[in-house]
């Protein structure tokens, strides 16, 4: 079990070193990055927006019920919703959702290319398949995920506002005052640093599992599952580490 874990870690590190080798032709890589921004980022817009609005709404309603005492001013609900969204919900939960959506896509795409010998075909042409397949995805995700996360923050806070106003739990003016109160730019940096790190983890780990797929269609499915499970676990662990490093 432990030796298996160490084997994977070692092979993963070697793979990552390969990924960052000098690419063959830069113009091609630039085009690949744009394609991946669309595949991995823009295609995830709808799910990110959907989840964010609803989670923001739920967060706001829960805050309102938990602070059901005249001693706490109503704007606290807006403030607390914003803090939860910025510090934890958007960077971590949305990254976990992206790990499921983007991670499985990457493992199965690369895994299929492995079992159908498309990766061998790249190598035979003298192209470094790790750089060609994984590098553009890493760059694209590290660029687009923070943007998705920012968008998620805005939509979640808006979802909270909508829920608060429609249910009458928080008057609009109080909520808006709350989301502007005690604002620290550092919190945004903190969230963006997290989302960049998580983007790297998602792509590299699911890419790793895809790249070392052996066998056929069944194993591609297994690789896809492993990609999602292991990147999810990595996000959870790194979330703790980053929180400790950046906030403590």
């Amino acid at each position: 079990m432990i030796s298996g874990f160490l084997f994977h870690i070692g092979r993963y590190i070697l793979l990552i070193r390969q990924v960052f080798k000098r690419p063959e032709k830069q113009s091609i890589y630039f085009r690949q990055i744009l394609i991946e921004i669309e595949n991995l980022g823009l295609d995830s817009l709808a799910i990110v927006a959907f989840v964010s609005v609803f989670m923001g709404a739920v967060l706001c309603i829960q805050m309102a019920f938990n602070m059901d005492t005249p001693l706490i001013p109503l704007y606290t609900i807006g403030f607390a919703t914003r803090q939860s969204v910025v510090l934890e919900f958007s960077p971590t939960i949305i990254s976990l959702i992206l790990a499921g959506k983007v991670g499985s896509r990457i493992s199965s795409e690369i895994g299929t290319m492995r079992v159908t010998e498309q990766i061998d075909a790249l190598e035979i042409m003298g192209i470094n398949p790790t750089t060609y397949l994984i590098f553009p995805k890493i760059v694209a995700s590290m660029f687009i995920n923070p943007i998705l996360i920012m968008l998620s923050m805005i939509l979640a806070v808006a979802g909270g506002w909508l829920a608060g106003s429609l249910t009458g739990l928080v008057p609009s003016s109080e909520y808006v005052y709350g989301i502007k109160a005690f604002f620290e730019v550092y919190d945004i940096y903190y969230a963006l640093i997290k989302s960049v790190v998580f983007a790297f983890l998602i792509v590299s780990i699911s890419g790793y599992h895809g790249f070392y797929t052996k066998g056929g269609a069944l194993e591609v499915g297994a690789a896809s599952t492993k990609g999602v499970v292991h990147s999810t676990m990595a996000i959870i662990v790194f979330n703790l580490i980053l929180t400790k490093l950046l906030l403590a």
């Binding site: 159908t116 010998e117 498309q118 075909a121 035979i124 042409m125």
Partner: peptide, 17 residues
């Protein structure tokens, strides 16, 4: 260098989907 001088036809074709 040598790989640019060789072509290979794989069993399943291995065309890029």
């Amino acid at each position: 260098v040598i790989r640019q001088e060789l072509g290979m036809l794989f069993q399943g074709g291995a065309l890029f989907d």
